[in-house]
Design a protein around this nucleic acid. Sequence first.
DNA 1: CGAACGACCTGCAGGC
DNA 2: TGCCTGCAGGTCGTTC
Length: 270
Amino acid sequence: MPELPEVETSRRGISPHIVGKVFKNVIVRQPKLRWPVPDNLPALLIGQTLQSVERRGKYLLLNCANGSLLLHLGMSGNLRITNPELAVGKHDHLDLVFADDTVLRLNDPRKFGAALWAEQPSQHPLLAVLGPEPLSADFSGEYLQQRAGSRRLPIKSLIMDSHIVVGVGNIYASESLFLAGLHPERPAGEIDLMGYQRLATAIKTVLQKAIEQGGTTLRDFTNAEGKPGYFQQALRVYGRRDQACIDCGEPIQHLKIGQRASYFCPVCQH
DNA sequence: CGAACGACCTGCAGGC
DNA sequence: TGCCTGCAGGTCGTTC
């Protein structure tokens, strides 16, 4: 489910229900996620007040006075607000129960997600190495060009590297490159400053728009809502193999780049 | 150092 | 209906 807009949407969705409340119970049903869920997580959280919910890249930080719970949703993770009466389903791995019986529940079929503890989140090894937030002023064409140096890596792989910039997943990478008119296989070191400025702007535009749309995702999310989401209208290339380019009519092409499906217009992108 | 690739895990669609 | 293959929003760790 999640790229940055989906994680941000989750953050905004859960915050009002849980911030300021006291952890009453922590139920770990499946500790084997991407990394083991710490044994002492209940002891760390119970009795603490949740002070705020922040996002860093695709991580959510549930901040308490004694440290932060880091949540990552992997490929298939989902958070929702529920209550102790509602039946526990398959892949409901973690429940955070608050004093008023509000429950924040993590469901993650593929178990690529994570629930970790950090006393100082910014120092945590997974967070300390992350690149800038794409919507911040730190992220610019100049920055991208500087990080690209003379690397031969395909540009799509570069912008999906969280050490370079966080939050650009497989869908939005294809979409951003289309907006910027850049071929996804272009070696990063070959792109000039103007190209990088277009790309940085495109990434910001695509992510911002997706957040505004509520970060709708591909299958599940839209079905549950019963509405056509952001993607049906707004995806310009992703998943549109052999369909006409919205700008020039040429069939959208499909490639594997770094093991990931990539979509682009061979006429509009160079 | 950079680049490529396997690994983690489940569910689903499509072909036979 | 059932079996098999390939594919899916992420990203770390290993190898060359």
